[in-house]
Design a protein around this nucleic acid. Structure first.
Lengths: 210, 210
DNA sequence: AACTCTATCGACCATCGGTCTATAGAAAGG
DNA sequence: CCTTTCTATAGACCGATGGTCGATAGAGTT
């Protein structure tokens, strides 16, 4: 029996199933057969749409990054919020954890998923740096930020935010996080060169967590 | 024919060969058979010493990190060098690129080696944070550094240094590097809270590269 | 010489990512 | 309505891989 579907629909099915599997089981531990048996297609069909397992991974990562960038851009548009807060909120909202609402998201960043993680990081940095360029320069012109290397500063803050909170390179306990977040925002402030305490509102939001 | 060797010697042979292969070809692309044919042993022998390919990887990473930490500690001991410079030099010398002297080292950090990379980063951060703790606190006591979160500051500087220069997350051109290095040292200064220009000597060292 | 034990061997296995040929079936032409 | 075309689908097959396991050589012990 052959079930024939529109090309784009099949492609989406494969991408959606693969995305869930890659995130939940890890890229390496997800076999193509795993994908096939859920989508209920044969090997040939898979390789009709994609040339390799890795191509699927790359397509999925681009989608995840793009989704995040869109969330960030939406937040940055809301001019009623102070600029610094807008920027920090955009960085947080961009993380893929915020995507769906259901279930555990902690699965995404485990040691097994190193390849997914690294490709994601690379793509995210490129995309998000361009998103944040304009607002940071705006901050410099409005004399809120004082720094010499805006691009590199953005790169650094994005990198730190990701590595500290969306990644499993540190094995911190739950009770460590308020301190880590405070320290992160403090360092971000120093790099941006804001007037001291500009981010205090933000700090308080997290201070209550402990 | 059976060549029987002392247990520890065999173990070392396997580790040494695997280390070279993992770094040059990448972890994924190095097959156990590759290792076997160079060490000239059978599969059974390999699995007599290690329970999996991954166990070998972990052992190797610990060794690489330990070697780096030793180089860093050596540099920090030399009290004739100003504290800030000592710290930055220690961070640079710790990177595995500095290890051997021969051949290309760029192979280490490619996308394929994501797993090696991530495990390395995790282990390195843990080890090097403890190495740098003491000198940074010394700097605070001597009123050279002014910061509230020494541990988190060290973590951030190590992370940035690694991601910017020992990792391939950014695709920078050669001519970008002087600027990136300057920006990195500038941000490190801001986070440490040194008097402005404390690292100027260092900056000049890299300014000449362009 | 018989026994023991450990380091070694290599045949074997399931699974993996990927290739290739055959074909079902919708669409098009007569 | 039959034939042709073409594309989406199927699944047998392949070499390589990480890993298992029972057999055994050989050094040390009795």
């Amino acid at each position: 029996m052959k079930t024939i579907k529109d090309g784009e629909e099949r492609r989406r099915e494969i991408l959606d199933v693969a995305r869930k599997l890659f995130i939940n089981k890890g890229y390496d531990k997800t076999s193509i057969n795993d994908i096939l048996s859920i989508v209920d297609i044969a090997k040939g069909t898979f390789y009709y749409y994609f040339t390799s397992k890795e191509e699927v991974l790359e397509a999925i990562i681009l989608e995840i990054v793009e989704d995040g960038a869109r969330r960030a851009e939406l937040i940055l548009k809301d001019k009623s919020v102070p600029l610094v807060n807008r920027i920090m909120m955009a960085i947080m909202a961009q993380a893929p954890e915020f995507e769906g609402s259901d279930e555990i998201k902690e699965e995404l960043h485990k040691v097994e998923n190193a390849k997914l993680e690294q490709l994601y990081l690379k793509a995210m940095l490129k995309r998000m740096t361009s998103v944040l360029q304009e607002p940071v320069i705006e901050g410099m012109e409005r004399d809120i930020f004082h720094l010499e290397y805006p691009t590199e500063c953005i790169e650094s803050i994005l990198l730190l935010g990701h590595m500290m909170f969306d990644c499993e390179v540190f094995d911190w306990k739950m009770e460590d996080y308020p301190r880590k977040i405070t320290a992160f925002l403090c360092n971000a402030e120093k790099m941006l060169g804001t007037k001291e305490g500009e981010l205090n509102e933000f700090l308080q939001m997290f201070g209550q967590l402990s």
